[in-house]
Design a protein around this nucleic acid. Structure first.
Length: 444
RNA sequence: GGUCCCGUAGCCAAGUGGCUAAGGCAAUGGACUGCAACUCCGUGAUCACCGGUUCGAAUCCGGUCGGGACCUCCA
């Protein structure tokens, strides 16, 4: 299995640190608002990564945090005249709903920054003790020059960053690139610490939680490409300060999602929230997986519609095949797998093995659709159709697509049979009436 | 100003040195059909442009044009 490592900028063969186990951490959302469709991309993609590893029989320890304390959460709490906790609770709840909507599992460890405050504070203390951080007036800053190859992830040099940068002047810092570990403040929620009352900076929470939860280096660290610098760069720097080693073997960054070829922007009114998306969410999921994860993806209503249609086609053939077997009481027959199906499965897995090429995997899913339709029309055996269903289940499970098709109850079966009979007897009025009924029930 | 990415048919998109450049949507011709839907079969590209390397390039190198990202909170 090959994965593109954005730390080394090359495709690497994946080798887990601990046999048969994958430890993966993905930077999660700051919970001050509903997530938009761009936020949903990593939520969907890394869910597929987890699913694929699980399909390959790995034990996957998947962790993705909630940033529930920072300026935006505090501002929101002040605006709404409520507490940071209330704001966080509200949007964490909303996040879970949205994640479930787009078909991503929410059953993973999701630590909140506020729950790890003591770990974060002691992490900062250790950085100070070892000379990697310094205190000024109750603030604590990280000393970037103390880490030898700062900029290794984003391919930048300290000098380049300073030159022509728009970094605000802060006389407290030794170096303009030094970043805040602890911020002295009296606005919003604060915590006591050896450095004084305040709250942590954004960049320490992830490393501290990774240290606390995984106890060392992880296999994969993921997130959006736009937080490569400075956030991930700073994570690497802090971890190296302690461990003289990288925090993760592999860094995976997903590309951005744009709308009409432009970055989403609140101020320009170019934002679409997941909860406001008025389409089948499985179609949206398919859309986000139709482009390789490292490439930017451009959202337009038309393109989304095309994938919603594509999803309907997939679901339709699955449903027809499933009911076909159900009506023949053949859902439990043993599958007979043809060479064609074996080839489709092989190509699907090859695509996934090659840096999670979901676009090519979806092509094989489309091939399966066509093949199943052909098999269905050829009046093939139930055993052959069962093999199609099982392969669909495998693919859907890896990609996180849910057709939501369950066995028919006795009365629905009776209606279906009556419809078939009516057509046979050329009683078309009755047939059309029954067809309408079946259609309303979503069976046709 | 600095760093980097991208430009493949009307649209989306895979392929990153080698047989006739995957696949989907749209369009269009046909088949199937009680009607409709569904479905199946067929039809489309000198890979932005110019130059170079090579026996051979969409794929590598240089340049031009166009689009975008990061350097500041941002998934």
């Amino acid at each position: 299995m090959k994965i593109y490592n954005t730390l080394t900028n090359q495709l690497e063969t994946f080798t887990p640190i601990h046999k048969d186990t994958v430890n993966i951490y993905v930077c999660g959302p700051t919970v001050y608002n509903y997530i938009h469709i761009g936020n949903a991309r990593p939520v969907i993609f890394f869910d597929v990564v987890r699913r694929y590893f699980e399909h390959k029989q790995y034990t996957v320890n998947f962790v993705s945090n909630f940033t529930d304390v920072d300026d935006k959460v505090i501002t929101k709490a002040l605006e709404d005249q409520t507490t940071e906790l209330e704001v966080a609770n509200k949007f964490i709840d909303a996040f879970y709903k949205d994640a479930a909507r787009v078909g991503s599992s929410t059953k993973y460890l999701a630590p909140r920054v506020t729950e790890y405050m003591s770990a974060i504070i002691s992490y900062i203390e250790r950085l100070v003790e070892q000379g990697y951080a310094y205190q000024v007036d109750g603030d604590v800053y990280f000393r970037v020059t103390k880490v030898s190859d700062y900029g290794i992830l984003s391919g930048r040099k300290i000098d380049d960053l300073i030159e022509g940068s728009r970094i605000e002047v802060n006389n407290k810092k030794e170096n303009p690139l030094d970043f805040t570990l602890w911020k002295k403040t009296n606005t919003g929620i604060t915590w006591p610490s050896p450095f004084g009352e305040g709250r942590p900076g954004w960049h320490t929470e992830c490393v501290a939680m990774i240290d606390e939860i995984f106890g060392g280096k992880i296999d994969i660290h993921g997130g959006g490409s736009e937080i490569k610098f400075p956030h991930h760069e700073n994570e690497i720097a802090q971890h190296r300060a302690f461990h003289q080693d990288h925090i993760a073997n592999i860094w995976m960054h997903n590309g951005q999602l744009n709308i009409d070829d432009k970055k989403m922007s609140k101020s320009e009114g170019r934002v679409i929230l997941v909860k406001d998306l008025d389409v089948d969410y499985m179609g949206f999921r398919l859309f986000t997986l139709s482009t390789h994860y490292r490439s930017p993806i451009n959202y337009t209503d038309e393109v989304l519609d095309a994938y919603v249609k594509d999803w309907e086609r997939m679901r339709r053939v699955y449903k027809q095949t499933f009911y076909h077997l159900d009506l023949k009481e053949s859902l439990d027959v043993s599958p007979v797998v043809s060479e064609n199906l074996k080839a489709i499965e092989l190509r699907f897995m090859d695509a996934m093995d090659h840096d999670f090429n979901t676009a090519n995997a979806i092509t094989e899913l489309q091939n399966l659709v066509k093949f199943t339709n052909q098999t269905l029309r050829q009046k093939s055996s139930s055993e052959e159709l069962k093999a199609c269903i099982e392969l669909f289940d495998t693919f859907f499970n890896i990609l996180g697509l849910y057709p939501g098709v369950t066995p028919l109850n006795a009365s629905d079966k009776a209606i279906y049979m009556a419809w078939t009979d009516a057509r046979k007897n050329k009683d078309f009025d009755k047939a059309d009436c029954l067809r309408e009924k079946l259609s309303e029930k979503g069976i046709l």
